[in-house]
């Protein structure tokens, strides 16, 4: 195996260009599990943790190399909430937002936040330069992304208009170090519209558009509307049954979580 350890983005992109099949290594918390379990035997690895251009977080731009530990202590409420639920302190010290985006697991804890915000993913290549894709253009299937073989994820770009209220919650069978069986992020925007995103209930993170429409611009939804929203979410998600949870449970819990989060975000 060969490893390239660039310290600048240009060098990283050059390496990516020269080794289009190379595995990208950031925090290692996904890649190394595959390596340890012999599911993947990298021939070429590009290690990204020394690349200064992706390590920073400035305003709306969260560098791909920013760790969960940093986001947990950051100013964005729901992002901090979800970061606190990722793995363990050891995982949060190593794992990055870029890795979460690149792995594109349906259970990726950071993805509902990006989906709710309609965030963009910034990628770059040596040949074509920088491009930005909306989250749903980038996350295309179970562990499938639109990243091209010569590209590297540079940052998550948050929109200019940020919510006035945002809440995240995650259901798992134990109280720490658990893969979500359902996760949800709900936001109330300045124009009074609502954003609802869910993880672990479809091949990719999804938005609950029907429920968002039902909520309209109601600032403080109550009673029957909340129940309708919960039902709409439960109907809208597309979960599977596996050894972690049943489809029926995931539908139910999706509705309950969203209802509670809407309540917490209500004016």
């Amino acid at each position: 195996m060969e490893i390239v350890r660039p310290t600048t983005l240009d060098d990283a992109l050059a390496a990516r260009d020269a080794l289009p099949g190379a595995d990208l290594l950031a925090g290692g918390t996904d890649l190394m599990v595959e390596v340890n379990f012999h599911h993947r035997e990298p021939e070429h690895v590009i290690a990204l943790r020394r690349v200064s251009e992706i390590a920073g977080w400035e305003g709306r731009r969260i560098g791909a190399g920013v760790t969960w530990t940093r986001m947990e202590k950051g100013p964005l409420r729901a992002l901090a909430q979800l970061s606190r639920t990722v793995g363990s302190p050891q995982i949060r010290n190593a794992g990055t937002i870029g890795g979460n985006i690149g792995t594109a697991s349906p259970a990726g804890d950071g993805l509902p936040y990006l989906a709710a915000l309609d965030a963009e993913i910034e990628v770059a290549s040596a040949g074509r330069g920088v491009r930005r894709l909306r989250w749903d253009e980038f996350l295309v299937g179970v562990k499938q992304t639109a990243l091209r073989p010569d590209e590297i994820i540079i940052a998550a770009i948050l929109p200019e208009v940020m919510p006035v209220a945002e809440e995240f919650a995650k259901v798992g069978v134990r109280n720490a170090m658990v893969i979500s069986t359902v996760s949800a992020c709900v936001m109330r925007m300045p124009d009074s519209t609502w954003r609802i995103a869910l993880g672990s209930v479809a091949p990719t993170v999804i938005r609950a558009r029907r429920a968002e429409e039902l909520l309209g611009t109601t600032a403080a939804p109550r009673g029957s509307l909340l129940a309708e929203v919960a039902d709409a979410v439960a109907a809208e998600v597309r979960p599977i049954t596996d050894h972690r949870a049943t489809e029926a449970y995931r539908r139910h819990a999706s509705g309950v979580l969203v209802r509670r989060l809407v309540g917490r975000c209500a004016a």
Partner: peptide
């Protein structure tokens, strides 16, 4: 219940 998953009020 749910701990830092913030599921439960």
């Amino acid at each position: 219940p749910g701990g830092t998953g913030l599921t439960t009020d």
